[in-house]
């Protein structure tokens, strides 16, 4: 491209052409979405299987999510190296997912702290919670715990997914986010085993399937825009 002066029509055509080119800069390869969809999906399904089939696992399947951080760091590093451009929406979406990550950690902290802390606060007021098994007369002290914690996780899954879907006009994530809200409501009426199953299905619908679709689109885009 030379440094020539343009007519008004040429200027307008050039602006339109360049904005179109910038919009066609497709960065999203779906690797992160596939990784988290697969790992969280597996954790949910394993936890559900553990509960339904009474399998004895020596660890909590949800701890496997911690392992996913290693490939995620590699993906972030490699994408940072290869991306030559960063769009306005990239910046906003990265911020949303970062806040989501912090919120997941905060929620897990809530799950672990709120029970014992509530017992302590009740004791400060001079109360203790007891439970009574139906049909018996005996009472025994009850350990407090957060109710339906997986429901809250499913609710949290929906937020960044739906924001990403709407911002990128990416229908699979919009559908995934909406289904997540539906699963959240269903999980309020089901036990922990079904909640885990719904969490696993949510991750697959929210991230794994959209990630695979993104990957396919990315490859097609690379083939046609070399």
């Amino acid at each position: 491209m030379a440094d020539k002066t343009l007519s008004e029509q040429e200027s307008l055509a050039l602006i339109t052409n360049m904005i179109q080119k910038a919009r066609n800069s497709f960065n999203e390869n779906g690797n992160g979405a596939m990784l988290w969809g697969a790992v969280v999906g597996l954790c949910g399904l394993l936890s559900a299987a553990k509960g339904f089939l009474k399998i004895d696992l020596p660890f909590d399947p949800w701890l496997l999510t911690l392992l996913a951080f290693i490939p995620q760091f590699i993906i972030t590093y490699k994408e940072g190296k290869s991306n030559m451009v960063r769009s306005h929406s990239d910046k906003a979406i990265d911020a949303v997912w970062m806040v989501y990550g912090i919120s997941v950690f905060a929620l897990v902290a809530y799950f672990n702290i709120i029970g014992p802390q509530s017992e302590r606060l009740l004791q400060d007021y001079g109360y203790e919670v007891f439970r009574k098994e139906i049909g018996t007369d005996g009472y025994e002290p009850m350990r407090l715990f957060p109710l339906s914690p997986i429901s809250l996780l499913i609710l949290l899954f929906a937020i960044p997914t739906l924001i990403t879907g709407i911002t990128r006009s990416f229908r699979p994530m919009i559908v995934g986010g909406i289904l997540c809200y539906l699963f959240f409501v269903i999980s309020l009426f089901t036990n922990t085993n079904y909640d885990n199953l719904l969490a696993g299905i949510s991750a697959i619908i929210n991230w794994l399937i959209p990630g695979l679709i993104m990957r396919k689109k990315y490859k097609e885009h690379r083939r046609t825009h070399v």
Binding site: A2, E10, S11, M84, H88
Partner: peptide
Amino acid sequence: HSQLRLAVVSLLISVEEAEFTYLRDKTN
């Protein structure tokens, strides 16, 4: 109001930031 500068600005207005190589590739 010059071809290359307008092309660069039109690209940059659409993104947060871009590398020199990206601008070179898109503007030829």
